[in-house]
Amino acid sequence: MTAAATGRPHAPGSGRGRLRMAPVLMYHSISPSGVADPHRIRVHPDRLDRHLRLLRRLGLRGVPLAELVRATDRGEAAGLVGLTFDDGYTDFLEHAVPVLDRHGMAGTVYVVAGRLAGQNEWDEGPRLDLMDADAVRAVAAAGHEVGSHTLHHVHLRGATPAVLAEEIQGSRRVLEEVLQAEVPGFAYPWGEFDAAAADAVRAAGYDHACVTGDYLPGDRFTIPRFYVAPGDGAARLLAKLTRHSWRMRGVPDAGGAG
């Protein structure tokens, strides 16, 4: 599925009810590098391979978040898991795509639109390379979704209306110009949001947005994800999947909801 096939965004003001979502995994860098990883964002490709093997054994298939949201709308999300990769590191094409292809799965890459061909300057280091415009187009051409992760990877909680508009609307404009296609999905940097940030994402015309770990409000613009750590083995990943299923108990199905 490419970004061109993501469907029409919902109108601003919709999507306020809590969703009963399938699990959504959050990765960052996928690389065999041995460079220091103080922020714990690097998962080895072999470990990603083991994670996807586990999903297959459980009868699950990893898909981009836009595909998962659409399937949830139709009441057809059983057997699906969302796969997301934050920041848009260059190693996604080299190391993640071959693993995903091997298992017949695809994911969403959330790109920091104002730092194309740059580095992760929002962290203290080490510095990691970010995809340029050609690489972003290659991600979409390979069958993965491209989503927005703001212009500069800034904190949105407590941000002014001007900053929210620049970072949220501006990043979507940049990516849609790069892809010449709609960009329906957004991820809040560091998973941080407040009501004003969620409202700004909705008003910017996105179809959905995801956070990190939070389960409330858990609506279309605050979809929960769980962080996958570098050392997470099969048992830890299975525990996270089980915990998610437990947390979703009692939430009504969203089939047919808008």
Rank of each mutant, 00 (worst) to 15 (best):
S29L: 14
Q169R: 13
R172H: 01
V99P: 03
E121S: 15
S245E: 15
T90K: 14
T222R: 13
G15S: 10
S148P: 07
R16Q: 15
D232V: 11
V146A: 01
G34A: 12
R225W: 11
Y89F: 15
R225F: 14
A198Y: 03
T150L: 04
H244I: 11
S148F: 05
A196K: 01
D232H: 12
G59A: 15
A138D: 13
V63P: 12
L130K: 08
A141W: 03
L116M: 10
Y89G: 06
P23E: 05
Y188W: 02
R47D: 14
D194T: 13
T212F: 04
A78S: 15
L93T: 09
H144A: 06
A204K: 04
A235S: 07
V174M: 01
A181D: 01
A135I: 04
M21F: 04
P38C: 05
Y227P: 00
H153S: 08
G17K: 10
G88C: 13
G256N: 06
D73I: 12
V251G: 05
D46K: 11
L58Q: 15
G250D: 04
Y215R: 11
T108H: 02
P38Y: 04
P98R: 01
A117W: 04
L55R: 15
T2C: 02
V163C: 01
V63C: 13
H95V: 12
D91F: 06
V24A: 10
G62A: 13
R225D: 13
A66M: 06
A141Y: 05
D123S: 06
G158R: 01
R70D: 14
V178E: 06
R243G: 11
V139Q: 06
V178F: 04
D46Q: 14
L68I: 14
C210E: 00
S14P: 02
P224C: 09
P224N: 03
A133L: 02
V211H: 00
L175D: 09
I168M: 01
G107S: 10
